[in-house]
């Protein structure tokens, strides 16, 4: 029972971490990044690649965030910027990019799956329960990153500027803010979050070129369920989708769970188009 609950918390935190980058980009820039799942995958493959060079795991994690963040910066510069007033074409372009990234990974690493050894093998005793230490660490990091993102946006000048650019880009320009630079920084940050998430989950899942879609769809549903724009929405949506997936997983087969959760999510989106956390 306690283990099931911890699993659910872990699922929620990982999903929110994955959805966070997507939500930042969607909420701030109204850009739907269909390649987000592949950015998560790129993060995981950065770890696979660097581990081949015997880089210590935590070094790989940091490198993954940096590398994928840089990817994001380039994507914004090359694709997103030029389709800003055509949102459906942004979807198309990033969707195409997801195919390109997937195929690039197939060419570089082959179509098969890879596994990353657990950096921490230990189990931690929590009362009567033994829980894998690495999972706890991932949960802690996810919680810290989520809280950090929130604090950054709430309490720093740069976060304030980002919120201003999001709300009224033209007015922000009038006050001297370079909105283009804010956009590329935001997109890069969203990508870096995806890379970080991918690196952190790499030891827990099988790392393969097709893994992206499995992150993209739940993350999007989480954002839509919770309500785009507000970070609180990501938390609520991520909790709803992640926890129900994880808890129902104890009862039913994964496919049934996925069908039920996706179905419910679509119904919620339908009934509350603004999301659960509408202000």
């Amino acid at each position: 029972m306690a283990a099931t609950l911890l699993d659910a918390v872990s699922a929620v935190l990982v999903l929110v971490l994955v959805a966070l980058g997507l939500a930042v980009v969607f909420g701030m820039m109204r850009v739907i990044n269909m390649a987000h799942g592949e950015l998560v995958m790129s993060g995981a493959f950065t770890v696979v690649w660097l581990q081949g060079w015997h880089v210590p795991f935590w070094g790989c994690v940091i490198a993954a965030a940096v590398v994928v963040g840089f990817f994001g910066w380039m994507i914004e510069w090359v694709l997103v910027r030029h389709t800003r007033d055509r949102p459906l074409d942004t979807i198309l372009a990033t969707w195409g990019l997801s195919l390109v990234l997937k195929q690039a990974i197939v060419l570089l690493f082959g179509p098969g799956s890879h596994s990353v050894p657990l950096p921490l093998d230990a189990m931690v005793g929590l009362g009567a329960l033994n829980y894998p230490a690495y999972r706890l660490v991932v949960m802690a990091i996810a919680a810290v990153v989520i809280a950090g993102t929130y604090l950054f946006l709430r309490c720093t000048n740069r976060g304030l500027a980002t919120r201003a650019v999001m709300a009224r880009p033209a007015t922000a320009e009038l006050l001297g803010f370079n909105t283009d630079r804010t956009y590329s920084a935001t997109f890069a940050a969203g990508a870096a979050l995806a890379g970080l998430a991918g690196a952190l989950v790499a030891p827990l899942v099988s790392v393969d070129p097709q893994m992206g879609l499995g992150y993209l769809v739940p993350a999007f549903l989480a954002i839509l369920v919770g309500g785009a724009g507000a970070l609180g929405g990501v938390l609520a949506g991520g909790s709803a989708v992640g926890a129900s997936t994880s808890l129902l997983g104890a009862l039913w087969s994964p496919v049934t769970v996925q069908i039920v959760v996706f179905g419910l999510a679509v119904v919620v989106i339908r009934l509350r188009p603004q999301g659960l956390m509408r202000e």
């Binding site: 500027a161 919120r163 201003a164 009224r168 803010f177």
Partner: peptide, 21 residues
């Protein structure tokens, strides 16, 4: 006017300065 409606008065004021470093 185009004030940032969701932000507080003080945040709006600070933005005027932050925008110019």
């Amino acid at each position: 006017r185009e004030v940032f409606g969701r932000l507080s008065v003080e945040e709006n004021l600070r933005l005027g300065a932050i925008g110019k470093n």
